[in-house]
Design a protein around this nucleic acid. Structure first.
Length: 446
RNA sequence: GCGCCCUUCGUCUAGCGGUCUAGGACGUUGCCCUUUCACGGCAAAAACACGGGUUCGAGUCCCGUAGGGCGCGCCA
């Protein structure tokens, strides 16, 4: 394949959620694997709702996932291009002036819906004469501009969905330019795709109808039509659309919940595909797994429980070098031995903080069997301690008290760590050290 | 209301007319390991939405029903 040029085009009107991450990752990973170009395009033509802080938050979320755009463009800075494209469409007779008010259009739509008809624009403005237009403008009315669709079936071979078609007969001519001269999504999107020579448009299936319209615009401009890949949408575990639940499933909140970007990326890319959902540590490797033809055509449920589980798998496999700085930031010392001892008990890296006092103190022991713990204190061997100390010690305690199994180990675990679950004590014991162990066995906070 | 798409274990899916007594992964349950919990290993339970048709034969093709997603903006 020649080097593809792709784009992820969020509107900076809110935070990215896991579904957006899926789109962004599919684009970025496809480009990365094919040696192509990944463009981050901010669709900020809606000046009312677009906010610079959302653009910054989006860039931050993408960076967290490991996505670095090759090119960043803001549509708000490219209006000259859109003006030229609008003029070109007027010149080829595909952009026409309309004078209806929003209220009027809304009223007509309701009327059509009430009669069981598709609520499409009736093209009344097409019948306007030059005199009509002159009169309306004389009254101070400014036109908005619609693209005249050809009423025909537009077909393409979708990289995900296969042979696809949309009948444009049942579509309204889209408004491309407002009265105030600002542009609506469709025109800037196509103008940029042409100008930036985008080769593959990879986006959610909510855009399939847009694709038919946009293909007509590409053709009206005499431009090459890119390939399209419409991936399935993600829903919540209960089947709700993601955008309605975005506060909890935003990338920002997932990040703040302490999840690994790799776990989020793995699930975002692999769920709803023929590929097994599993933790994939490197984005390069994840890129190798992207296959449009293996993306399902039906919506997939995104389960937070699954994300936590995937995150745990991720953490269990993380090397000390990979987390050293983050442990330090958590106020956790302990070195590699500590990390090796505790990592398989963690769901999130931040959980490591809970185990630090266990080896470093202070910790208040829980004494459930004073007799056993007392005997254990007396049997405590001298240092140095290593991985075999635990067995030597507990064998001695077992011989003196007759306790075994859970009755032997649980009181010792509770006395040494204060909780009834946790890492292998054989590994923990040398890290706790004889002094602290001894004091905890006597019931002291240490 | 109209249009497009979809419907296999709890979840994500494999399956493109016979090789399906339907395979895998996650989860679940059990067992093993560790003389403890967890980690790890092994094993088991668990699905073709429903009704017609085509065919010697249907999870696979066709029609219908039900359910779901998306779209039908001077949002993107």
């Amino acid at each position: 394949m020649t080097r593809p040029i792709v784009r992820f085009a969020p509107s900076p009107t809110g935070l990215l959620h896991i579904g957006n991450a899926r789109t962004a990752l599919l684009n970025a990973l496809f480009a990365r694997r094919e040696g192509g170009t990944f463009i981050l395009r901010f669709d900020d033509t809606d000046t009312e709702r677009s906010k610079p802080e959302f653009a910054a938050a989006i860039a931050e979320d993408l960076a967290w996932l490991g996505i670095v755009p090759d090119v960043v463009v803001h549509q708000s800075a490219r209006v000259d291009l859109y003006a030229a494209v609008a003029e070109r469409l007027k010149a080829v007779g595909r952009l026409y002036a309309c004078y209806e008010t929003p209220d009027e259009l809304e009223r007509r739509r309701r009327l059509q819906l009430g009669r069981g008809l598709p609520p499409i624009y009736d093209r009344a403005a097409l019948a306007l004469t030059d005199e009509d237009r002159a009169r309306l403008e004389g009254e101070g009315r400014r036109p908005h501009w619609r693209f005249r669709l050809e009423h025909r079936v537009v077909a393409w071979t979708d990289l995900v969905r296969g042979d696809s078609h949309v009948d444009c007969t049942s579509l309204s001519d889209p408004v491309l330019v407002r009265e105030d001269g600002t542009y609506l999504y469709t025109l800037p999107s196509v103008a940029d795709d042409v100008d930036l020579t985008v080769t593959h448009v990879i986006r959610g299936e909510d855009h399939v109808t847009n694709t038919a319209v946009q293909m007509q615009i590409f053709e009206a401009l005499g431009a090459a039509v890119p390939a399209f890949a419409h991936h399935n949408l993600l829903t919540t575990a209960s089947g709700e659309s993601l955008s309605k639940r975005l506060r909890h499933l935003s990338l920002k909140s997932l990040r703040e919940a302490g999840l690994e970007p790799g776990a989020v990326a793995s699930l975002a890319v692999l769920v709803g595909t023929a590929e097994t959902v599993r933790p994939v540590a490197r984005l390069d490797e994840l890129a190798g797994l992207v296959d449009f033809a293996h993306i399902s055509r039906s919506p997939a449920k995104f389960d937070e429980g699954e994300l936590n589980h995937l995150n745990a798998k991720f953490v269990h496999a993380m090397s000390y070098d990979g987390v050293r700085e983050r442990l330090a930031a958590l106020g956790v010392g302990g070195g590699e031995a500590f990390w090796q001892a505790i990592r398989t008990n963690l769901t999130k890296v931040a959980d490591a903080a809970a185990w630090w006092p266990v080896v470093h103190g202070p910790l208040t022991p829980v004494i459930t069997d004073a007799a056993l713990v007392g005997a254990a204190a007396e049997a405590l061997p001298g240092e140095p301690w290593d991985g075999s100390t635990w067995k030597t010690w507990t064998d001695t305690v077992k011989g003196r008290t007759g306790a075994k199994g859970r009755a032997l180990f649980m009181p010792l675990r509770l006395a040494l760590t204060g909780v009834d679950h946790g890492p292998e004590l054989a590994a923990l014991m040398p890290l706790i050290g004889r002094d602290r162990t001894s004091r905890r066995l006597r019931g002291e906070t240490a």
